[in-house]
Computed example of a mutant assay.
Amino acid sequence: MKDAFSTYHPILNFGYFTFVILVSMFCMHPVFLTISFIGAFIYSIKLNGKKAVKFNLLCGIPILVISAIANPLFVHEGVTILTYFSSGNPLTLESIVYGISTSVMLVSVIMWFSCYNKIMTSDKFIYIFGKIIPGMSLILSMILRFVPKYKSQIKIISKSQKSIGRDVSNGNIIQRSRYGLKILSVMTTWALENGVETADSMKARGYGLKGRTNFSNFRFDSRDKKFTALALCLVVTFLIGIYSGCGKIRFYPSIVISSENLQSVLTYTSYALFCIIPVVIDIVEEIRWKRLRLRI
Rank of each mutant, 00 (worst) to 15 (best):
Q153N: 10
Q153H: 09
I154C: 00
K155V: 03
K155W: 06
I156T: 10
I156D: 07
I157A: 00
I157V: 12
S158W: 01
K159W: 06
K159H: 10
S160A: 13
S160Y: 13
K162I: 05
S163K: 13
S163G: 10
I164M: 03
I164C: 02
G165M: 02
G165K: 02
R166M: 08
R166H: 11
R166V: 02
V168D: 01
V168K: 02
V168T: 14
S169R: 08
S169H: 12
N170C: 12
N170Q: 09
N170L: 08
N170W: 04
I173E: 14
I173Q: 07
I174K: 15
I174T: 09
I174P: 08
I174F: 09
Q175P: 06
Q175H: 15
R176L: 05
R176K: 15
R176A: 02
R176M: 05
R176G: 04
R176Y: 11
R178W: 15
Y179W: 05
Y179I: 00
Y179Q: 00
G180A: 13
G180Q: 01
L181H: 13
K182V: 13
K182Y: 14
I183A: 01
I183Q: 01
L184N: 09
S185F: 13
V186A: 12
V186P: 01
V186W: 02
M187C: 11
M187V: 09
T188K: 07
T188F: 14
T189H: 08
W190I: 07
W190Q: 08
W190T: 06
A191W: 00
L192A: 05
L192V: 04
L192E: 03
L192M: 04
E193W: 08
N194P: 05
N194D: 10
G195H: 03
G195N: 07
G195I: 03
V196S: 08
E197L: 11
E197H: 10
E197W: 07
E197I: 08
